[in-house]
């Protein structure tokens, strides 16, 4: 053990510590939103930070996505063939720009990822209505960079997993007992900054566009 560590702990342990009354620490639900209300709030929040939100369903999302890819003039789309959504997309290859799977470690194709990928599509593990946030737990099939480096990020959110607040999402999905993944993310809009004279600019280091498809 380092000497620094020993000294720090010695000092911290040397003093009497206050008892803290922890009443009021736990989450109290303050909203009573049904699914329609959650969808409405989520959409409003996302749109307020310039994310695109499309309301769709299991029958029509594939066409919607194909149209969006065309309208945005994308030449390729990074998407895993192993997710529910990815499987459907790969069955309709002809309708989409060139599909690319993230099938190797990043080191093997970093340049392509940084400079040639136009857009990506990922699934989400849930959403938060109060703040307009997507919850992502990147996996081996859908690694971390997918929602970070490509300029356009499509995300599909199954509204069954749209929770009212972050606290509820965490509780209902039992994050604690599931064990935290390498990286868990909340994403609430495209990347932005107001560092230049407080003028809001989008697309700083992360995606310039975030497109959410609600199912």
């Amino acid at each position: 053990m380092s000497e620094a560590r020993t000294h720090i702990f010695q000092r911290l342990r040397a003093v009497p510590r206050p008892e803290v009354d922890t009443t009021g620490r736990d989450y109290v639900p303050i909203y009573d939103w049904d699914r329609a209300e959650r969808i409405k709030r989520f959409t409003e929040r996302m749109q307020a930070v310039r994310a695109e939100v499309h309301h769709s369903d299991r029958d029509s999302w594939l066409n919607l996505l194909a149209d969006l890819c065309k309208a945005k003039g994308l030449t390729n789309l990074l998407v895993s063939p192993h997710t529910e959504w990815g499987q459907a997309i790969y069955q309709q290859v002809g309708e989409f720009p060139t599909l690319q799977d993230y099938d190797r470690a990043i080191e093997a194709w970093k340049h392509e990822m940084f400079y040639n990928i136009d857009a990506s599509l990922t699934s989400t593990v849930g959403g938060i209505a109060e703040t307009g946030s997507l919850i992502l737990w990147p996996t081996e099939q859908e690694p971390r960079i997918m929602s970070l480096v490509p300029p356009v990020h499509f995300a599909i959110l199954d509204t069954q997993h749209l929770y009212t607040t972050f606290a509820e999402a965490m509780q209902e999905q039992d994050w604690l007992n599931q064990g935290m993944p390498t990286n868990a993310l909340l994403i609430s809009g495209p990347s932005k900054s107001a560092d230049i004279a407080q003028v809001l600019a989008y697309g700083v280091h992360g995606p310039k566009e975030l497109v959410v498809i609600l199912i």
Partner: peptide, 28 residues
Amino acid sequence: LSDIPPLLSILPRSATGQPITTYFNMIS
């Protein structure tokens, strides 16, 4: 872990008046 949502709720709202920041990144 359950201490995080309340802190995340009040931090960006107090700081810049945003409901939440674009990214909340949890690394384990």
